[in-house]
Amino acid sequence: MKPLSTPEDFVLSIEDLHVHFGGKKIVTAVDGINLKIKRGEVLSVVGESGSGKTTLGRTIVGLSRPTSGRIILDGNEIDSKNKKALKRLWKRTQMIFQDPYSTFNPLTSVYDSLTIPVRKFKLAKTPSEVRARVEDVLVRVGLDPAELEGKYPNQLSGGQRQRASIGRALVVEPEIIVADEPVSMLDVSLRAGILDLLKNLNEKLGVTLVFITHDLAVADYISNRIAVMYRGKVVELGPSHDIIDTPLHPYTELLLRSAPRLRGEMRWSEKQDLILKDTSKDFQGCVFYPRCPISVDKCTTSEPPLVEIKKNHEAACYVRYEQEMSKR
């Protein structure tokens, strides 16, 4: 991927973010995340279900409210309680949803769904300006405005709907787009088109892309950096190729071993995913300890911090940290 111009220019800074849900039974979705997202990069957030990746994405765009911690967009803290502030936020961050079949209001024409944000954010003055802007965006996402005229969502294919939803996000010219599994519900043959479209938009328009996915192969294909999440925490963070070729955290290794490959063996034995070490309720150690094949005593005492182990490559693992330090 092409190198970024100013590596220390962060468009978004997430500080000690915690997001809890629920009244009687508290569900911790995001459990202490510190993350800085560079302007213009494509960052993939990879994790399985329950990792908190979707909640993280929703919190970035203000759809979920942090329980504690801050999110700072371009130097300004996001205030998710203030409705006016949220409206201003949505001019700058937008989201693409996973299910193309329920991402549009079935009673509104696709075209109208795209004009709504233009009007609401007062991005154009006259109806013809509004029209021009929407048509421009439709072309950009590979759709023919004439063909879309008067059509309702159920008259478009899944791939077209997803493109239109990218258009809807793009029409306000946001700085950041959070894409939540945008291709996982599409047929395989359609995915490349959408992925390339997103890559293209990132490269041509400089839109920062936060790409949420469970698929490491897709993450590797599209992103500059990958953040691996497990149970609400980021356990590894670094350049995509480094994460894939030389993973540091045992969970990342587990993901890589389990992922199907077109050529080559799945190196995972059947019984290994059933390793489960018992821990008491007030266990304070590493969140991956119960499933970890390389754990040591230290892992039960406290949570390992996410630290740089190799150049620009961070992982939250005591064992790997020690191993790397002893090499030097």
Partner: peptide, 26 residues
């Protein structure tokens, strides 16, 4: 719970508009 409601919020519609123009017609 459906994404298009969240999408409506992201499109700048306020709560009342969403209730009356998005949810109610559906």
């Amino acid at each position: 719970a459906r994404p298009f409601v969240d999408a409506s919020r992201l499109s700048g519609m306020n709560d009342l508009e969403i209730m009356v123009k998005v949810l109610l017609p559906n």
